[in-house]
Design a protein around this nucleic acid. Structure first.
Lengths: 339, 339
DNA sequence: TTGTACGCGTTATCAC
DNA sequence: GTGATAACGCGTACAA
């Protein structure tokens, strides 16, 4: 009779004069239970402050009450927003969040993740872009029976395995806005090759241009990889062009910050001489000078929905899987200079 | 004979013709073992790809292989840096990282954390500022026997429970630098009251001033709370002064970004008319225009050391607990304007 | 140096 | 409806 530490299910059973199994039924909301019994057991539980031991449950259920976040360090603000959303979803539950960064360039990535999932026996995982776009990874999750949700820029999977934004439409809207102000020479800085989000954003750009009957030389499209430095380098190339673009759409905010940096070094005034648009609406966007016009996608809400899908796979399809982005107009965009 | 899922310790025992316990000894590196036996068991382990089940271990050991990160959302970049450091430390181990945000304004915070720790039975937790400065929280960890490390701006605890930077000295060095350029009217934007880091940084500021024999009016010290907006608001007040400061030290980078924002709105040229210094060297610092002179503290290394202390409490004191910050000179600082 | 028997706290099976 | 009893996979006394 060691009274050390937390009370266990045995203590509850003994004190309420029922068997362990009955207590277990009470905990797990079994429907076939005498109301009277349930009430009595619940009283004892409350009195003792009993809480089920997650380790023991994990062992018996062969499944942990952990939600995994697997990512390849896509972008700091994004990871933070996602964590915030997941934590909102699991706040009042017994779930916890475990974070697992991986290296997408590693040839053993899928195998590594598989080991991790099998060992930790997570309840489910949220896959962030760009690795969420990896089909092999998704099949592996299905194969080992691990619940998963993929976050992406477009329809990657069934609704119960997906939270996605509409990057293509959002970029098209942003570009239409630029065009409506009179810009014709619009530069574009792409995201890294192989990223679905990069492709979607580029497609939105091209769509808006085609729609308006504008054609631009291939040189107006520069490669980037979502980093500040790549944005700056791309902007250098774009601004070396003659005539140079009067507006630049960067596929994310960090690269847009790089564009601004390059513009400043050339003593180009933004937005008078050069308009800039970004994507993500990360913290940096509103804090730049001038504040950046950008596309905001509801990352926290998306992550929250994703976590809810993972926690309750049966109703996963009830949570929304498609989310709308919107254009945030700040002061980095203006009409092009005359002449 | 169910051959489903992972091999267990029993499979290893059977195939290598020894008892479970012997396998257990091999796993746990027991010294008293026949070399021959160990070799044989290890072969079988490798062959089967056996990995101990963390859930079962957790139950038997009454201790999980999880490192907890507990924080009150101090600042996005910091949380990310810390996660990176922890993950470096546990990369090759069987530990995982679980993240737990809390609300320091909640009266039940310590109790909530206690419940979390007792239920999850974490191997140890890393406490981030500002809650790391909470003595009640630290005593609670000691009381329930949970290993902990506090991250702070000064000596908060014994070396085995601490990773700290020398904020005071670092700020003093930065301010000396400003003074050496000829600045006399230096404004200061403080961090939130009650934050030890805020106090330390202020102390460093005052120390450097006193050292140089400079006295400033009380109005040159403005309140802030580490947010962009508070930095901007504080800068407004400072720049309304007459004569206004020729340099402003902001207690973190985000506030420094706010100062820059305010300066731009007034069309003050930085650094010609106003020098700005920040603290943290977050991503934003190098990407602002002009790039921000700031203080860098080795957050990733500190977090890595903290995690190593948690993983191996016996050698916790071997890992360094004091870390040096350094001044990063960029272009937001110049000599004050003449006259 | 190695093995036996049991405990860790929970859930699942299958009787009653 | 409810309760013995056996998993779940590993660690630890204690014995051999």
């Amino acid at each position: 009779m060691k009274r050390t530490g937390q009370p266990t299910i045995n203590d509850v059973a003994r004190l309420s004069g029922v068997s362990k199994k009955t207590v277990s039924r009470v905990i797990n909301q079994s429907p076939l239970l005498n109301e009277e019994t349930r009430r009595r057991v619940e009283e004892v539980i409350a009195e003792l402050g009993y809480v089920p031991n997650p380790q023991a449950r994990a062992l018996a259920l062969r499944r942990n009450f952990l939600i995994g976040l697997i990512h390849d360090n896509p972008n700091g603000q994004m990871v933070l927003g996602v964590q915030e959303g997941i934590l909102e979803a699991i706040r009042e539950t017994s779930y916890a969040l475990v974070v697992r960064p991986v290296d997408r360039r590693s040839p053993t990535m899928v195998a590594d993740i598989r080991n991790f999932l099998e060992q930790q026996r997570l309840a489910g995982v949220l896959l962030l872009p760009p690795i969420s776009e990896n089909e092999e990874l998704a099949s592996m999750c299905r194969e080992i029976g691990c619940a998963y949700v993929r976050m992406g820029s477009t329809t990657l999977d069934d609704p119960e395995h997906l939270v996605a934004s509409n990057d293509r439409d959002a970029v098209a809207e942003a570009v239409r806005h630029i065009i409506s102000l009179g810009h014709q020479r619009i530069g574009f800085i792409a995201g890294p090759p192989g990223f679905r989000s990069a492709e979607e954003r580029m497609a939105g750009f091209e769509h808006a241009l085609a729609e308006a009957g504008i054609t631009i030389p291939r040189s107006m499209i520069a490669d980037g990889n979502y980093t500040f430095d790549s944005g700056r380098a791309a902007a250098e190339r774009l601004l070396d062009l003659s005539p140079r673009p009067t507006a630049i759409f960067a596929s994310n905010d960090e690269m847009a910050a790089g564009v601004l940096h390059a513009a400043r070094q050339r003593e180009l005034r933004v937005p008078d001489q050069l308009s800039i648009v970004g994507f993500d609406d990360t913290a940096i966007a509103a804090h730049m000078w001038p504040p950046l016009t950008t596309v905001r996608w509801p990352i926290v809400s998306m992550a929250r929905a994703a976590a809810l899908k993972l926690i309750d796979p049966d109703h996963a399809a009830d949570e929304p899987s498609l989310f709308l982005s919107s254009l945030i107009r700040r002061s980095s965009v203006a009409a092009p200079p005359k002449g």
